[in-house]
Nucleic acid binder design. Structure first.
Lengths: 201, 201
DNA sequence: AAAAAATAATCGAACGTTCGTTTATTTAAT
DNA sequence: ATTAAATAAACGAACGTTCGATTATTTTTT
């Protein structure tokens, strides 16, 4: 959306500084990763973003709203990254492989996003409604696995279960390898092979 | 441990009220699960435990120390639960199956512990040193998988990788099933089959 | 066996600081 | 001139932690 487009919709308002919004967003992610949820506060995030504390309240209703929206934003980015380049012309195995690679690539390129998700996703901040929204977002991925079941290639069970056997091992192993600084040791070709062995018929 | 036994070890100290320690411990777990790390505080935990805030400081040095020790405690309980009943007389497959069942049983019986772990384990509170300690504790489990590799039954890779393919899918799927209230729908026999397919040669 | 002394667990109150949020005002864009 | 973004200042409440007094328990002395 360009500035002129926006001018038609909202005529005389002063527009929100997108740099500022981005600064708040990434400061939230960064601070959570650095000091954790226990020690984080609105003022610390504002300071990290180079913004007044009260400015946070022009972008978010309150603390909870802020964490929820930032979480959903990051999560959505991850899911759309996982779906990238998926086509119905390729085989299910090719698609699954691509989804796994997309996930791995996202984790590597957005390490901070990934660790933020890991730390947020189990918090009671994240409501069942949010989980539903996320599932909707990952519909494209689900369809790949559903196709695999129909074709008799994958095990006849819930697609969510199949997806779990790809996503969780990969993400957890990446996490462990980061924590122990042995990223090079993991053979991701083997990991994908193991994922596939788990879900294939 | 009887009172007389204890008298030999600790002579002059007044004995800490174990009920109180337990109350603090479980209040910590409960509060984290209910309101999350963002909203938790020493005073809230003390109130939930039915104890003065300052009493927390006779059991723990400070807030961080408290969360760390409670986390380690819970984590150790889980790992020793997973090792329960493992014998070198049984086949590797039997042992692996038992470990998986132990994990599942622990999660079901100690839902609160499990969710607390899930929420804590990705926090920067948990240091690399703590991760090392945990790995030492799970040595018995590691040995089972090492034996499987030596016997040529399991894939020739790091035992940690193999364990990951059992633990993470099971725990994540249990978590999802709780969140969506569809615990009955999951076929855990199939889940174990998928774990085994992933790791077997 | 009883009393006294010693020790640390316990707690309520208080510390200074920081919390999340609101209000009043200024700044900047139209 | 109008509108909203942006902020500084201010709010009471809550924060993590410390402290002094009290209580409960054990050891030592009678």
């Amino acid at each position: 959306m360009t500035i002129t487009e926006r001018s038609f919709i909202i005529s005389v308002m002063r527009i929100k500084d997108e740099n500022k919004k981005e600064a708040i967003f990434s400061a939230t992610v960064r601070m959570i990763n650095e000091i954790g949820f226990v020690n984080v506060s609105m003022s610390k995030i504002a300071k990290a973003a180079g913004v007044s504390t009260s400015t946070l309240y022009t972008y978010y209703e309150n603390k909870e709203d802020m964490f929820r929206k930032v979480y959903m934003d990051v999560k959505m980015q991850m899911h759309s990254a996982c779906n990238r380049g998926i086509s119905k012309d390729e085989t299910v195995k090719q698609s699954v492989r691509k989804i796994c690679e997309n996930l791995l690539e996202f984790m590597q390129e957005h390490k901070d996003y990934f660790f933020f998700i890991e730390q947020s996703s189990n918090s009671p901040l994240v409501t069942p409604i949010m989980h539903k929204e996320i599932e909707v977002q990952s519909q494209e991925t689900i369809e790949v696995f559903e196709r695999g079941i129909q074709e008799g290639i994958l095990k006849r069970t819930s697609p969510i279960l199949l997806i779990g056997f790809c996503f969780y091992p990969i993400s957890q192993l990446y996490k462990e390898s980061c924590q122990q600084g042995m990223l090079q040791d993991i053979d991701y070709y083997l990991v994908f092979q193991m994922c596939w062995d788990a879900i294939k018929n």
